[in-house]
């Protein structure tokens, strides 16, 4: 069981958290073409190595935050709060 460093509460057992998927995804603009929406909803990278992802501390502070985790070892390289606001997609 991973020990996840919540940026607000400190390290806590994985059972307190919910996984939220790829942290780099951005919802397309409302008028984006259907293909952009299909990419956003269905297509995911499955990297072997560091992965930026979202976690939710549901049994703690109820915050969403970002974690960089190595998918090969489950080592958490860093965790950070969501703010400051994310830059828009290039």
């Amino acid at each position: 069981m991973m020990l996840i460093p919540c940026p607000y509460c400190g390290p806590r057992n994985q059972i307190e958290f919910t996984y939220g998927g790829d942290a780099t995804l951005r919802r397309p603009a409302p008028d984006a073409p259907e293909s952009a929406w299909v990419d956003y909803v269905y297509l995911r990278d499955n990297p072997c190595g560091p992965h930026d992802e979202l976690w939710y501390h549901g049994a703690g502070c109820r915050s969403w935050f970002k974690v960089r985790r190595d998918t090969r070892t489950h080592q958490i390289l860093e965790s950070a709060t969501i703010d400051p606001p994310q830059p828009a997609d290039p």
Binding site: L54, Y56, S63, I82, D83, P85
Partner: peptide, 13 residues
């Protein structure tokens, strides 16, 4: 609840 937290914290702060 989790969905709304996510929208308010990440998508539309």
């Amino acid at each position: 609840m989790q969905h709304i937290d996510r929208l308010l914290q990440i998508d539309w702060p």
